[in-house]
Design a protein around this nucleic acid. Structure first.
Length: 426
DNA sequence: TCTGGGGTCCTAGGACCC
DNA sequence: TCTGGGGTCCTAGGACCC
């Protein structure tokens, strides 16, 4: 059996930890640039605040109801996530925990008998909540998709389930799938939900009862087939217990305000490149290809929001490496190619690909041999930036004016990762 | 005024190889 | 007259996830 442990309103939960006055109050957390609402407490949900809603649209309701607002504080969330995951690893053994996202993990509970599962899940829940202060819900079932369904019930009926639901019999599975809306099934997105609803299949149970061949033909081939199997209790999505290196690393952001000069674009692109290279080095990899994209700012047409045109170009290095200045040089050239004078831009980004482990670098006979001193320098910069404040050491191309930097008007202190921002206890 | 920032997997089709 | 069959690698695009 597999458990999914899911933190309740994770970002809001992190913010609340340090503000006891908010423990019973509605709270929301905004996306980067204070653009959208990406986390809400139950109290905020009850007041009709929608997920993914643009902040400016909800502003009136937020003020009227006195809802607390935070900009996203990823230092805090990342650190709390680590604590939650470490707690689970200490309870069941690290090899049985698959971290799925910042606020979710699958746990392999195959060592436990059916009659022990509920007690074990409850024990995990209580320990995580006591040790970290973060509230979680747990669903347990024979497959990942069914565990997600169990967790859906656990969250939906918190008072009744106490946040833990175990589906250990086919009868219980059927009961849940008959309630679960098709659009809430893990693996069914907007498109497939529309398709299924159009055919009158409004619940997860309907999809489970269709022939597997239908799922294969109409829901993305083997992906659909796997989903169908999982719904019928046959594990088809492995519990991936090892940490896999990323095959693509991207850093992209909206600008705080639209940007139209090449200098600003180049600063932003250089900064994103430096950040992407940090991510690359953290997983001890090298990359051969860098691509840069910019998104033009679109004049609003008829009040309807639309994304601007996205233009990109890429460059392949003669040798894969993780040397920031090499990539910045390439990125700046790409930025120049993309830039059109007079055009206004809303967003830019950098993507690294053709990523391989650093030990296995393919050498190119025509390129200069890798320079160990440069690698050493990268290491030093990473260590300095990690231990001191952000970006204490920067590359000159990243600039110092940062006209394009994102808005973060409501960010809380980084309570757990910066000495200067530690909470004070009197 | 104002709409996130990452990722994954899969399929299809073209180029190329033996 | 007649033109294989199997494989790899790459890219683009579509679907999904949190």
């Amino acid at each position: 059996m597999i458990a999914i442990v899911d933190c309740n309103s994770f970002y809001c939960g992190c913010e609340r930890l340090f503000y006891p006055a908010l423990w019973q109050q509605p709270v929301v957390v905004l996306s980067n640039n204070d653009g959208c609402i990406i986390s809400r407490t139950d109290e905020a949900k009850a007041l009709g605040i929608a997920m993914g809603e643009p902040y400016f649209k909800s502003k009136d309701a937020i003020q009227k109801h006195g809802i607390a607002v935070f900009s996203s504080n990823y230092h805090l969330y990342g650190n709390m996530s680590q604590r939650v995951m470490d707690t689970m690893r200490s309870l069941v053994g690290a090899q049985h925990v698959e971290v799925y996202s910042v606020d979710e993990a699958f746990i392999n509970l195959s060592a436990y008998g059916p009659e022990e599962l509920h007690a074990m899940a409850t024990h995990i829940k209580h320990t995580v909540e006591t040790w970290t202060g973060i509230k979680v819900s747990i669903g347990v079932a024979p497959t990942k998709v069914l565990a997600k369904a169990a967790n859906w019930v656990a969250k939906k009926h918190k008072a009744f389930t106490k946040g833990v639901v175990v589906l250990e019999t086919p009868e219980k599975v059927k009961k849940v799938l008959e309630q679960l809306p098709i659009a809430d099934v893990w693996g069914v997105g907007r498109k497939y939900a529309q398709k299924l609803e159009g055919m009158g299949h409004t619940r997860a149970w309907h999809l489970a009862q269709l022939p597997g061949t239908w799922a294969r033909t109409h829901m993305g081939g083997v992906v659909g087939l796997r989903l169908h199997r999982e719904l019928n209790g046959i594990p088809a999505i492995d519990l991936d217990e090892r940490l896999v290196d990323k095959q693509m690393i991207a850093t992209t952001r909206m600008f705080g305000k639209p940007v139209s000069t090449l200098a600003d674009i180049k600063e932003a692109v250089a900064t994103y490149t430096a950040r992407a290279l940090e991510k690359l080095r953290r997983q001890h990899s090298v990359a051969a290809c860098i691509s840069v994209f910019v998104v033009q700012k679109e004049a609003p047409t008829g009040g309807r929001f639309s994304h601007g045109r996205n233009i990109s170009c890429s460059y392949t290095m003669p040798v894969a490496s993780a040397i920031t200045p090499h990539f910045i040089a390439a990125a700046l050239q790409l930025a120049e190619q993309l830039y059109t004078p007079g055009q206004t831009y809303a967003k830019a980004g950098v993507t690294l690909s053709q990523i391989t482990p650093a030990q296995a670098v393919q050498q190119n006979a025509f390129a200069a041999a890798a320079n160990p001193q440069l690698n050493q320098l990268m290491q030093t910069i990473d260590n300095t930036n990690f231990s001191m404040r952000d970006d204490a050491v920067k590359f000159a191309a990243s600039g110092t004016t940062r006209n394009w930097k994102m808005r973060q008007e409501h960010r809380s202190p980084r309570h757990t990762t910066r000495w200067q921002e530690l909470p004070v206890v009197r």
